[in-house]
Write a protein that binds this DNA or RNA. Sequence first.
DNA 1: ATAACAAATGCAACAAAGTTGCAAAAAGAA
DNA 2: TTCTTTTTGCAACTTTGTTGCATTTGTTAT
Lengths: 141, 141
Amino acid sequence: MIESKVTELLKKTQLSVTDGRRRILELFLQHEGALSHGDIEKKAGEKFDRVTVYRTLQAFLEKGLIHSIPSSDNSIRYALCKDDCSDGHHQDDHVHFICNRCGNTTCLEEVVVPSIKLPRGYSAQQVEMLVSGICKSCGGA
Amino acid sequence: MIESKVTELLKKTQLSVTDGRRRILELFLQHEGALSHGDIEKKAGEKFDRVTVYRTLQAFLEKGLIHSIPSSDNSIRYALCKDDCSDGHHQDDHVHFICNRCGNTTCLEEVVVPSIKLPRGYSAQQVEMLVSGICKSCGGA
DNA sequence: ATAACAAATGCAACAAAGTTGCAAAAAGAA
DNA sequence: TTCTTTTTGCAACTTTGTTGCATTTGTTAT
Ligand SMILES: [Mn+2]
Ligand SMILES: [Mn+2]
Ligand SMILES: [Zn+2]
Ligand SMILES: [Zn+2]
């Protein structure tokens, strides 16, 4: 069950398990694809205060439960991390895909971000790769 | 002179040349690195209305004068395009670097975004690569 | 189970960012 | 210059994000 998975994850990351956190984590587990703050606010319904959603995402981020995905439309998305992300140390080196038709953002876990050679003087700490186009579900044609 | 370059660019893109547009384009030409809406608002001073800045960036974007750079902090940056970007068709296939020390975002024109193989069903229309770390100026020591 | 303590939540009051319609002003064309 | 079109500024508004504080809830130890 998702119920137990949720509690397990919260326990593992040393977060006290509250209704809000359970609900939001549940949303991530159910929903294939990334969620923005706004998405969560809508999906979680009236039950939780907006501020709580902000703080919960913040906490999840810090604990390495979720990672954030940059965007070109001023609305960061978040998605669950794999097990190897822990307390502050993220290890999400996969490509993200943004569908121009359905608008969904997906983690392409199987596609690793290629390494890259930077000009002299620059040193990289993190690399993000964002691909936009038509996703599998929308591809149809 | 920058003055004439500015006017030339506006004429070329069929934008009527106004004080606001001149000023903002000037900022882009002077400033090495990308600018956010907020940056521009500050740098342009009290002289221009916030709404005008929004509309100007929008216009520049559509005409292929500038391109936008995704971010993880809900503040899109913009930078000048090269000559080969025109009316709606952008051709900015370079890597963007975000410095964690000085906060500047730079176009690494000389670093081309590597191509990538997507899983079956996905088709790419655009690829963005964002590298964060320490930039040339901050690298020092 | 209860009490004590620590942490999370909701609320209120803000601040900041973004949007829209419209009248006035400025650009471009004739 | 005059006419026409486009851009601008303003006002009013919506949405998004932040902060402090009192209350509620979760956790741990008795
Ligand atoms: Mn991801
Ligand atoms: Mn660029
Ligand atoms: Zn899609
Ligand atoms: Zn720097």
